[in-house]
Write a protein that binds this DNA or RNA. Sequence first.
DNA 1: TTGTACGCGTTATCAG
DNA 2: CTGATAACGCGTACAA
Lengths: 346, 346
Amino acid sequence: MKDVAAQLGVSTATVSRALKDDPAISLATRQAVAEVAQRVQYRPSAAARRLRTKSTSLIGVVMQSVGDGYIGAVVLGIQSRARELGYQPLFFATEGRTDLESQALDVFLSEQVTELITVSPSASVPRQAVAEGLHVAVINSDEAVSARLFSRVASGRAVPDGLDACRDAEPMIKHIAFDDLGAGRLATTHLTGLGHRSFVHLRGPNVRSSLLRLLGYRQALAEAGLWPQPVLTATEPVMQSREAAVAEFLNRAQPPIAMVAYDDMSAVAALHAAHRAGWRVPDDLSVVGIDDIQFAAYTNPGLTTVAQPKHRLGALAVDAVLEKNAAEVTVLDGELVVRESTAGPS
Amino acid sequence: MKDVAAQLGVSTATVSRALKDDPAISLATRQAVAEVAQRVQYRPSAAARRLRTKSTSLIGVVMQSVGDGYIGAVVLGIQSRARELGYQPLFFATEGRTDLESQALDVFLSEQVTELITVSPSASVPRQAVAEGLHVAVINSDEAVSARLFSRVASGRAVPDGLDACRDAEPMIKHIAFDDLGAGRLATTHLTGLGHRSFVHLRGPNVRSSLLRLLGYRQALAEAGLWPQPVLTATEPVMQSREAAVAEFLNRAQPPIAMVAYDDMSAVAALHAAHRAGWRVPDDLSVVGIDDIQFAAYTNPGLTTVAQPKHRLGALAVDAVLEKNAAEVTVLDGELVVRESTAGPS
DNA sequence: TTGTACGCGTTATCAG
DNA sequence: CTGATAACGCGTACAA
């Protein structure tokens, strides 16, 4: 900046103002400055600017991992919206280690980040962050839920009120959520609409999103007069365990069956189990997933699923955290994508 | 920092030194400072530090996207190694738009980033970056290669020398590469070892990695006395086009056939085409992929493939760019992962 | 062993 | 319309 000022015989203050198109600066000098800055390849020092203004145009982003297709897509949405608005995201993958979560926070605080987005966080980070005075938005908050509540819902007993798309809005935290309940319903009504009468749900881990999808399954079936229907629980959230649960079920079931899986990976596990057990998809077993991960289009057969608007989830979180959007809670609908894994019962 | 100094009645300089465990500071004050800093939740200002020292502990990372499973895994490797070394990666996804590539560079320069890692870059970025004086490491540089060269290799004519794991090392650029040639050979020898005699290769786009995999295929077959064998070319690098190429081939071929696919996604396309054409895998058609994307374990049947050490690729790039490793070119071997998509000819 | 003083590159305030 | 000047928070040369 000094260089530019010197070359033109003006002060650095003038250059600074000219570069920001300050109308108080004459058009002539503004152009001259722009021209020289261009020639000298002037690059403003982000560090100096931050030090002076205390505003960083940095958005901290914490997530578990980025290696999986789902979060990757969300992250892409964050990145591209942030760039549009002139912000730079600072990503931090915690790989599930809680010690790294607080380290992430330390880093962000050192960088004077004032906006934080977390993707499917463990509960503590957002709370700590608001305590530090950050603006925070949470994408698909996924807090734990007791196994008792699950069996309550699965068995058809009364459900406590207030089971909504996300926990009660916490003060100072914006929530961007996928409509899990609606997705569960949508997947199920697709199947009832096809004429199925025998169902099964492969449920997910003990978290809220999973509970809501189960509830959607139950509601849709109840409305069709088909409730109750079985619910499968994998002992662990790994593919083998899911496959085993499905295999065991198919072993004592009669085709045709219609399955609503917790998510696409669960659905893939079900596809495997069906294949091994000699059940044909979709002839003997219809399967619907939820998420629409990139791979869903390439399973064999292609997976019918309820797509999450992953890109928008990310983009809206950016808007939320920058206060472009006042809503405390934003819920996005899923969209049914019909492929080859579902068909009517023959 | 002023606060801490005030509370202890010392100068900020002392605090600064104490925090770095400067041995010139008495142990007593060092501990006192540490204690107060802790209590006051002191966070050093990254901006101020950078402004003063001109070293940023920031590593710029440019990649196409992060939504796909492959790059995601590499990125994770970068992130975790960088953190170990006290560096903070600054990610920038270009989504394939070249205008964003230079924007990424602008951002990095403004942030005073001095180390840059690019993942499968378009050729221009690394060059520009070295011109700006950055240290740069390139992961799986993938420069374009003419279609003519491909047909030359496919048809078995003489191959120009110097077809190595990556282009001739450019000055100032470190290369971290996967051994594509070796992967092509490994995939092929797995198949010859199984006793196959009829082969086909589904080749990739016109880039070096793709050419090398093809060459590996050819070499392995030549050594087994089985060359020449057919090579399939998809008109476009999309799933449909790959499927079509395979379908057309299967239509005029006799089982059993052994296929080496350019990568796992191509292999998945082949699996689809086979399924549609009524070919059974692995009975009629054996398929080997390359990459070992997360999904490869979950195709139907599970895909045999040559795994890329994605995490290490990222980690080594960090080492390279920080000069922890002097080698100009580092080549990493693939590892055969046998699943259910390959079997001997019956 | 510690304190003083300066400067890193910006921007904001105030004066001209 | 423009210039001088101070200050942001830190690290370090120099002095004590």
